[in-house]
Amino acid sequence: MMRSALVTGGSRGIGRAICKKLAFELGYHVLINYQGNEAAAQETLTMIEEGGGTGEILKFDVGDSGAVHDVLASWSAAHPDAVVEVIVNNAGIARDGLFMWMTPEDWSTVLHTSLQGFYNVTNFFIQKLLRKRYGRIINMVSVSGVKGTAGQVNYSAAKAGVIGATKALAQEVAKRNITVNAVAPGFIRTEMTKEMDEKELAKMIPVNRFGEAEEVADLVCFLASKKASYITGEVININGGIYS
Results as ranks from 00 to 15, higher is better:
151 G>A: 07
143 V>N: 13
158 A>K: 01
146 V>Y: 04
139 N>D: 14
169 L>K: 00
143 V>D: 11
152 Q>S: 00
155 Y>M: 10
165 A>T: 03
168 A>M: 12
160 A>E: 06
138 I>P: 10
136 R>T: 11
144 S>V: 11
155 Y>K: 09
164 G>S: 06
171 Q>V: 12
136 R>C: 09
143 V>I: 15
141 V>C: 13
152 Q>G: 02
141 V>I: 15
162 V>K: 08
151 G>L: 07
164 G>Y: 05
155 Y>G: 05
170 A>H: 03
159 K>D: 03
160 A>N: 04
170 A>S: 13
164 G>M: 03
160 A>I: 05
142 S>T: 12
142 S>K: 04
149 T>Q: 15
171 Q>L: 14
170 A>D: 06
159 K>G: 10
137 I>Q: 03
166 T>R: 11
136 R>Q: 10
171 Q>F: 06
165 A>L: 12
146 V>R: 11
143 V>G: 09
149 T>Y: 02
167 K>R: 15
146 V>M: 14
154 N>E: 11
136 R>G: 10
152 Q>M: 03
154 N>G: 13
136 R>Y: 04
155 Y>R: 03
136 R>M: 08
138 I>L: 14
156 S>L: 01
146 V>H: 12
138 I>A: 09
145 G>D: 09
172 E>H: 02
166 T>C: 13
150 A>K: 15
136 R>V: 11
162 V>P: 04
148 G>L: 00
153 V>Q: 07
142 S>N: 08
168 A>K: 08
167 K>H: 08
147 K>E: 13
156 S>K: 06
161 G>C: 14
135 G>I: 04
139 N>A: 14
158 A>F: 02
148 G>Y: 00
150 A>I: 15
156 S>A: 15
152 Q>C: 00
161 G>I: 01
161 G>W: 02
146 V>A: 12
160 A>M: 03
142 S>A: 09
153 V>S: 15
136 R>D: 08
143 V>Y: 07
140 M>C: 08
141 V>N: 12
159 K>H: 05
171 Q>D: 14
142 S>L: 07
151 G>H: 06
165 A>V: 05
154 N>Y: 02
143 V>S: 12
142 S>G: 11
141 V>E: 12
141 V>T: 15
162 V>E: 08
147 K>R: 15
138 I>D: 05
165 A>F: 11
170 A>V: 04
162 V>W: 02
151 G>Q: 05
164 G>P: 01
165 A>R: 01
149 T>I: 13
170 A>P: 04
165 A>W: 04
152 Q>T: 01
141 V>Y: 01
166 T>N: 15
150 A>F: 15
151 G>S: 10
151 G>E: 02
137 I>E: 04
146 V>I: 13
157 A>D: 06
167 K>C: 01
153 V>F: 09
168 A>V: 14
150 A>T: 15
158 A>N: 09
167 K>W: 06
140 M>K: 02
163 I>L: 10
138 I>T: 08
169 L>M: 13
156 S>C: 06
170 A>W: 03
144 S>F: 10
163 I>P: 09
169 L>P: 00
141 V>W: 05
166 T>E: 13
168 A>P: 07
145 G>H: 07
163 I>W: 01
136 R>L: 07
172 E>I: 02
170 A>M: 04
149 T>C: 10
149 T>M: 11
150 A>G: 15
170 A>K: 09
154 N>F: 06
152 Q>Y: 00
163 I>A: 06
139 N>H: 14
165 A>S: 08
169 L>W: 00
